[in-house]
């Protein structure tokens, strides 16, 4: 069988796995929804959660789509499509594919037509991402019990502990924004974008207070994300014109 990364066979494989993941998402969604109803949660709140999560997802999902397009030049569409819809992440897949390709002596700049090279790359990408799938079922419950223990002992400290985890993650990702500042004004672009998005978030909070419109608060994150991304275009142009 002649190998082609865009073959019908590859599409069928990918379609099966993606259908599985959609089914899993729907099953979990229904289960959580029913539980929310049982707990007497406001149905409007659950609907709003669906709406705002869907809107928020659009921009990051388009960025993920760009990752699929970038990888498709070497690996065809089906494989990147699969890996970026399931388990993988934008940062991981690109790096993993590039490392695996260089290990078998090919580059990602042209389509991989050698089946052996392709299968090696697929195996490396798969094995590299296995830990999450094994560790969540094995340790997930223990980790949760640990958190429950902390909270039972001292409820307030339990809340602070979780806030600490959030802040640890946020500070690491905010720190990265400053990674290129030593390269000159160009390196400050991400910092300016971060600040503009933060300002939009503050403006949303202000407008929400003034107008009492709940929807502003619900969509503040996607509004700020898209606003920050949109402003990055004039910011980049401006910085380039100043830096020459």
């Amino acid at each position: 069988m002649e190998f082609n990364p865009n073959s019908g066979f590859m599409y069928v494989l990918v379609a099966i796995v993606i259908a599985f993941v959609i089914l899993e998402s729907v099953v979990f969604l229904v289960k959580a929804w029913r539980r929310g109803k049982e707990l007497g949660m406001d149905m409007k709140l659950l609907k709003k959660t669906v709406g705002s999560s869907a809107v928020f997802t659009v921009a990051p999902a388009v960025a993920i789509l760009l990752g699929v397009i970038a990888l498709s030049k070497a690996l065809g569409f089906p494989l990147p499509w699969l890996r970026l819809s399931v388990i993988g992440s934008l940062t991981y897949e690109t790096t993993a594919a590039a490392s695996a390709a260089s290990a078998v002596g090919v580059t990602l700049s042209q389509e991989i037509t050698d089946a052996t090279a392709f299968s090696t790359i697929v195996w490396v990408m798969t094995l590299g991402i296995v830990p999450g799938l094994i560790l969540v079922p094995v340790f997930g419950k223990k980790i949760e019990n640990g958190i429950v223990k902390i909270k039972t002992k001292d409820h307030r400290w339990g809340e602070i502990f979780i806030a600490g985890l959030f802040l640890g993650m946020i500070s690491a990702f905010l720190g990265v924004v400053f990674a290129h500042v030593s390269e000159g004004l160009d390196g400050w672009i991400p910092v300016f974008v971060m600040l503009s998005s933060a300002v939009i978030m503050l403006l949303c909070a202000l407008f929400q207070k003034l107008t009492k419109a709940r929807w502003i608060a619900d969509y503040a994150l996607p509004i700020s994300l898209l606003g920050g991304m949109a402003l990055s275009i004039p910011i980049t142009t401006l910085v380039h014109s100043i830096a020459g």
Partner: peptide
């Protein structure tokens, strides 16, 4: 630039 700066825009907000 918009897609290069998605993470700063996300974490800033």
């Amino acid at each position: 630039p918009a897609f290069d700066n998605i993470l700063p825009a996300l974490f800033g907000a």
